[in-house]
């Protein structure tokens, strides 16, 4: 399988502080890769770096194009959708306006309409709340909204920043079931960062372990899952 995302020696940080000290990782076309790590390990920063939301050094190649240092808007236009930390809801807009914004850069109107139906099919609850102000949605609904908005881009790559964060276990399961569906049916590749290692390893095929800005371990999910030392020392269960 071809590489969709190829990251080499990625450094990134805020102001004077460097958070990522040279990460190298890759993501295969159609795959789900997860980056695991504790609070403050640099997971969110990694995703933000890919999207050009922080200053970066190093190489990031997406679908054959170097994207390090490009503007976020241009990276998005290449087909990278980001479900950000904190969900990034436009709280003053309606649910439907939020979803529609995801397709802002697309010009194929007919297909957009079809995609809207498809997204509502995945998340019928959002359809019920179409005209509601998005700020009034529950946490789980806002997470679904963020995923829907990202899907409306019709992306090649979906970046997911802790979609389980702060949600009830049942809702987490529902969201992950849908993510798996999207991956298998629509061949959307995903880069998932999570604190909840158990659930992330359940869906991903590859995993990287991030510790204070460095990758300390990598392998297929099965290997990582079944390695007791890794589990005890890094994943804590």
């Amino acid at each position: 399988m071809a590489k969709l995302l190829d990251v080499k020696g990625l450094r990134a940080g805020y102001g004077q502080t460097e958070v990522l000290h040279g990460l190298t990782f890759e993501l295969e076309q159609g795959g789900i890769t997860t980056i695991l790590g504790a609070n403050g390990a640099g997971k969110t920063t990694t995703l933000r770096a890919i999207c050009g939301m922080v200053r970066v050094a190093g190489d990031i190649v997406f679908a054959g194009q170097a994207i390090a240092g490009k503007a976020t808007e241009d990276i998005v236009r290449l087909g990278v959708a980001h479900v950000p930390d904190g969900r990034g809801t436009f709280v003053q807009l309606t649910t439907e306006e939020n979803v529609r914004l995801g397709a802002y850069v697309r010009s194929d109107k007919g297909q957009v309409a079809a995609d809207l139906d498809r997204v509502y099919h995945y998340f019928p609850r959002l359809k019920e709340r179409r005209m509601q102000q998005a700020g009034t949605l529950s946490g789980g609904e806002q997470q679904m909204l963020a995923i829907s908005r990202a899907l409306m881009l019709s992306p090649k790559l979906l970046l997911l920043d802790e979609p389980s964060f702060g949600l009830a276990p049942l809702i987490v399961q529902e969201i992950y079931r849908i993510l798996r569906d999207i991956n298998t049916k629509e061949k959307v590749s995903m880069l998932l960062v999570e604190q909840n290692a158990n659930i992330a390893l359940g869906i991903a095929d590859h995993a990287y372990l991030l510790e204070t800005g460095n990758i300390v371990m990598s392998g297929t999910s099965d290997v990582i899952k079944n390695d007791e030392t890794i589990r005890k020392s890094y994943l804590g269960y």
Partner: peptide
Amino acid sequence: LAMRAAAFNPESARLVG
């Protein structure tokens, strides 16, 4: 809609392009 989105939440607006 895009102008409103950019005004309300610039970061998310960039993320949809």
